[in-house]
């Protein structure tokens, strides 16, 4: 770690965030796996929206439709080893709107396998819990994993793989990623559509916090909070190659997200290859201006992807048809001024 804040530093430092955008320069990468991080697919800024009324509906067909709309062919998927990264930050029995729904995860596994994927596994490093087995139990995922014999990888306790930090907004020279992810061809972010009380929204980019192993970064991944959550989102996303995002917006969370908020029936799945474009589309569905979400605005400035609506190819449902404003709270500073006019 290059520089951790001193003992007198504030808990959430955003001071370096804006200056970092201006200072971000050449990106150095080593190895094939890392080179894929800023591959051409990042700049295919299409986003697909599909209405889904509930988790009791057919979820596999919309995902297959999304893959087709996003120009994934059977040939692209065949033989690939695919790792799904849902959001399982902190489950509680009976509260299903915190985490990615296990039935959507199952549908994604089935969709990729039906297209000939060689392997589809699920991985997470829960941010708030050390007992990952309990996380699987209370989220309902352990049942799905058991029934469908799906492999699960606990990223919190994985062997570390030190890679250069491509953007260094956190001032960390390197990041320690879980080594297991390098065994896979594709990483798919599968977040829950939620408001977030520190950074406005948590979607496919913020979801990658859960990749970072707790053994190296602690619980609740406090190093990244200390270095600035927004800085960390940019660093992790610029460093980790993401192939696809599938956002669970069937029932999301509004208000005091990412844990204590209320369920919000948005009734959509949003998919895309480019994380900023997918997250910007989700934000608009939530009635939130993506340009007001600092890390999304930064992502576009850094050429990580588009958030401008005119540069995102909208597939499936139109945003205007599915927009449903997620409640923002006056008491939360990060929610102020986010509403899409």
């Amino acid at each position: 770690m290059k520089s951790l804040p001193s003992s007198s530093s504030s808990p959430i430092s955003r001071r370096n965030f804006i200056t970092g955008i201006a200072a971000a320069g050449a990106v150095a990468a080593s190895g094939y796996w890392l080179q894929r991080g800023l591959s051409a697919s990042r700049f295919k800024a299409d986003a697909f929206i599909h209405r889904v009324a509930g988790y009791d509906r057919d979820l596999k067909t919309p995902i297959l439709a999304g893959l087709k709309e996003l120009d994934f062919s059977e040939k692209d998927v065949r033989g690939k080893k695919i790792l799904l990264k849902p959001n399982l930050v902190e489950p509680h029995a009976g509260i299903r709107h915190i985490n990615t729904n296990p039935l959507l995860i199952r549908a994604a596994v089935e969709a990729f396998l039906s297209l000939g994927a060689a392997q589809v596994a699920v991985a997470e490093g829960p941010g708030h819990r050390t007992d990952t087995v309990l996380v699987l139990d209370e989220s309902g995922l352990s049942e799905v994993l058991k029934e469908d014999r799906i492999r699960f990888i606990d990223l919190n306790y994985d062997t570390g793989m030190i890679v250069p930090n491509k953007t260094k907004f956190t001032r960390m020279a390197s990041l320690t990623l879980p080594k297991s992810i390098s065994d896979f061809d594709w990483l798919v972010s599968m977040p829950k559509m939620k408001t977030h009380h520190w950074v406005g929204v948590t979607l496919s980019m913020k979801n990658l916090f859960g990749l970072m192993p707790g053994v190296f970064y602690g619980w609740p991944k406090n190093v990244f909070h200390m270095c600035g959550i927004e800085n960390s989102i940019i660093d992790i996303n610029s460093t980790v190659p993401l192939e696809l995002a599938i956002v669970d917006g069937i029932v999301g969370m509004e208000g005091d997200g990412p844990i204590m908020g209320d369920p919000k029936n948005a009734g959509v799945i949003v998919m895309g290859r480019n994380a900023p474009a997918v997250d910007a589309t989700c934000a608009r569905v939530m009635g939130i201006d993506p340009h007001k979400v600092r890390y999304l605005a930064a992502a576009q400035k850094l050429n990580m992807g588009w958030i401008d609506e005119e540069f995102i190819g909208q597939r499936g449902e139109a945003i205007s048809k599915v927009r449903t404003d997620f409640r923002l709270l006056d008491k939360i500073p990060a929610h102020q001024g986010l509403r899409l006019v």
């Binding site: 001193s6 970064y217 602690g218 406090n222």
Partner: peptide
């Protein structure tokens, strides 16, 4: 720390040197 409603002056122990103190 009014947002977090904790006594942030207390010195406990952190997972990672130089960061905040946590329960475990």
């Amino acid at each position: 720390d009014k947002v977090n409603a904790i006594d942030a002056t207390l010195h406990g122990w952190s997972w990672i040197a130089g960061t905040s103190c946590w329960v475990e």
